[in-house]
Design a protein around this nucleic acid. Structure first.
Length: 346
DNA sequence: GTGAATGATTCCTG
DNA sequence: CAGGAATCATTCAC
């Protein structure tokens, strides 16, 4: 490395005329033009190169210092930088300022929506909350599942942030290292600040592609967790006996029009400790199954009708109709079972 | 293990 | 968008 300064210098004390290492023609000033002299010069230079390692560290440092102090150095440096800029780096310059990667934006948006990136939302996510709300079954079982989901999500979140931090730290360390290296090298070769900046942006681009991989795998993990959570929700739990009785009671006492209003559904949902959606499901299933096989439900219908009648009788004996169904087995709607002898199955 | 029962989901229709 | 119909998937009784 120190070869260059040595060859470039001739005016300072170091390597000046009279120095035994300098070519003959440089020492003489006028320069020899004969072939033998030239051969001699080359021989001296080769000799110089061969003996470079023999120089002491101090001597090398002194030469280096001399180079840096040379009055022409800044000008020469600038010229070389300019030439370099105009040739090699002009090709790369065109692809700077690229627009944000749509794939990266998608990943970022998803991580934000799932509550992995962005501000902490108590370990939960909007998606989880929505899923939990839709899942119905307001029981403790469901909330346990939900908290399990949240715990796993927060685990993913933690890993994501730890890794991200690691990458950022590594990126910063590497950038600093490269910048220092380039700055150091800029003393001996033409490296402009602009070029250093460019190198930094290249490093950042490389690291952001690694970050993208991290984001991608985090998204995959969230998707797997979510699908597992949703699968778990598919697990069916039978309603308890009391809830089924309440629903059946309503159904058979409104057999002519087994379509509970929104208010009625809400009321039933509250009584049965299930969601309105589950009430709707139950009535949907019940209507279709009843219609398909009235015979099978006959016994059940008779039982509930009798119970309703007893309830009504009790209520009336107490001078109140409060709990009796409003439209029991009246005209129209679904065919009634044999409890009403005049309205048999179609 | 098997089949019936049953809650949930999906697709279609008015 | 609510409800009907078909179907899926799980639970439960035997």
């Amino acid at each position: 490395m120190d070869e260059q300064p040595r060859l470039m210098h001739s005016h300072t004390g170091v390597g000046m005329a009279g120095h035994p290492g300098l070519p003959q023609h440089m020492q003489e000033g006028t320069g020899g033009t004969d072939g033998d002299g030239r051969k001699q010069d080359i021989g001296d230079i080769l000799q110089q190169i061969m003996t470079i390692t023999d120089q002491s560290l101090d001597e090398a440092q002194a030469r280096k210092h001399a180079l840096n102090c040379h009055r022409m150095k800044p000008a020469l440096f600038n010229v070389l930088c300019e030439i370099k800029e105009k040739t090699v780096l002009s090709i790369r310059g065109a692809q700077e300022e690229e627009p944000p990667d749509p794939q990266l934006m998608r990943l970022d948006n998803m991580l934000l929506a799932e509550g992995v990136s962005g501000p902490e939302k108590g370990g939960g996510s909007a998606a989880a909350a929505a899923a939990a709300a839709a899942s119905g079954g307001a029981g403790a079982d469901n909330s346990a599942e939900h908290s399990d989901y949240r715990a796993k999500l927060s685990q993913i979140r933690q890993i994501y942030h730890t890794e991200l931090e690691k990458y950022e730290q590594a990126c910063n360390e590497f950038t600093t290292h490269v910048m220092n290296l380039l700055r150091e090298q800029s003393r001996t070769r033409p490296i402009s600040p602009k070029e250093i900046e460019r190198m930094v942006s290249i490093i950042h681009r490389k690291f952001s592609s690694i970050q993208m991989q991290l984001k991608q795998s985090t998204c995959e993990a969230v998707m797997i967790l979510r699908s597992r959570f949703l699968d778990a929700r598919r697990k069916r739990r039978n309603f308890n006996k009391q809830a089924t009785e309440i629903l059946n009671e309503y159904f058979y006492s409104h057999l002519s029009n087994p379509y509970p209003s929104e208010e009625a559904k809400e009321e039933l949902a509250k009584k049965c400790a299930i969601t309105v959606a589950q009430v709707s499901n139950w009535f949907g299933n019940k209507r279709i199954r009843y219609k398909k096989n009235i015979g099978k439900f006959q016994e059940e219908a008779n039982m509930y009708a009798a119970r309703t009648a007893v309830n009504a009788a009790n209520a009336s004996s107490h001078g109140s109709q409060a709990n009796s169904p409003s439209t029991p087995n009246s005209a129209g709607g679904y065919p009634s079972p044999c409890y009403q002898p005049d309205r048999r199955i179609q």
